[in-house]
Design a protein around this nucleic acid. Structure first.
Lengths: 185, 185
DNA sequence: GTTTTCTTTTGATGTAGGTCACAAAATTAT
DNA sequence: ATAATTTTGTGACCTACATCAAAAGAAAAC
């Protein structure tokens, strides 16, 4: 649980009460790899913090899997669209390796809302997520295949090290073969 | 101001006090076309609601203007990254036609935070913005030039009617010439 | 209303990267 | 270990779209 506290403290310094509240309401979840922790149609009512492992986010388009991101240790993940809007998810969340996650349900995070520090954290985290999506979108659109690959190396080297080439290709929107050729060069 | 109230009431029903609070803190801004209302380096401390006109959002890449979106009547606009993270903006906001905007500064929106209805609105609006960005990104990445153009027609027909072809091309990430050819066909 | 400037159209040409097909390599299962 | 399966690499080919250039059209300025 300490890792989650450390993560939150990147955003705001927590007081004793806030830490205790988080510890009592967060839950630990252990999963084997390739397990679907969220499916389309389900409402996503949790935010997960990844203590160990990776979680892949993907959706289907014309029967084909499109990987939008792979989250690694010390990051949070959720289906933003489903969580923020309270609508059925359109995407899958799947463990990519054997993983240990810490989850906080939306109900519990509403209970935590009486702690101002925690509200400040959630806002800051959401703000950062927001800004990141915006940044990535722009960055990827402006680059060619090589440039996209290199951008991914800059901002998420872990993905390049640990993900399959096909998933990497999907994230940056090029074909598997092209990523293979970029690597060779 | 009524249009802003109507807009907010899409998200939450407002009580009398909330309406009065909004009316006393929101400001009306009148601009001629092509005026820069936000420049890179400035901190964006406002959310604008567009009562009349259009606002183009763009940034520079290798000296070239990349248009990321054009907002039309009855929409809000802001530099999300700058506003949410309180960092200097990396983008320009420019009126695209003579416009009437209603602005609420961040300071004032914090004053409005004592009204729970208004907090609920801000959260809902941010959630929707978030979900939209996410949706657009995915939608555009999966389509070819024609498909992207048609997607834009579905979700923002006003842009196709009123924006210059070069800006439309930039939004969907294809060349001006290609959009011209798509239109001809 | 004419000139100047900005925007769009159209044609010709080049190329980045997609698709297909199969071989090599690496994982996983038995 | 060996076999079965999944993943990655490589070559050949092709097409969607970028880029360049120049004309036509529209809007703004005088």
């Amino acid at each position: 649980m300490q890792k989650l506290i450390d993560y939150i403290e990147q955003f705001v310094k927590l007081d004793r009460e806030s830490i205790e509240a988080i510890e009592s309401l967060a839950e630990i979840e252990i999963y084997k790899k390739n397990l679907l922790i969220l499916k389309p149609g389900e409402r996503c009512n949790k935010i997960w913090f990844i203590k160990k492992g990776m979680v892949r986010k993907y959706h289907l388009h014309d029967g084909e899997e499109i990987t939008s991101w792979i989250h690694t240790e010390n990051e949070t993940c959720t289906s933003l669209q489903s969580y923020a809007q309270n609508t059925p998810s359109e995407e899958y969340l799947q463990t990519y390796e054997d993983s240990e996650l810490i989850s906080i349900t939306k109900d519990n995070s509403e209970k935590l809302a009486e702690f101002p520090k925690i509200v400040a954290f959630v806002n800051a985290m959401m703000g950062r997520e927001f800004a990141n999506i915006d940044k990535h979108t722009k960055a990827l659109n402006q680059r060619d295949a090589k440039g996209r690959y290199e951008y991914l190396r800059e901002i998420a080297p872990e993905i390049l090290k640990r993900a399959k080439i096909g998933h990497i290709a999907s994230i940056i929107g090029v074909s598997r073969e092209t990523v293979s050729r970029i690597r060779k060069a």
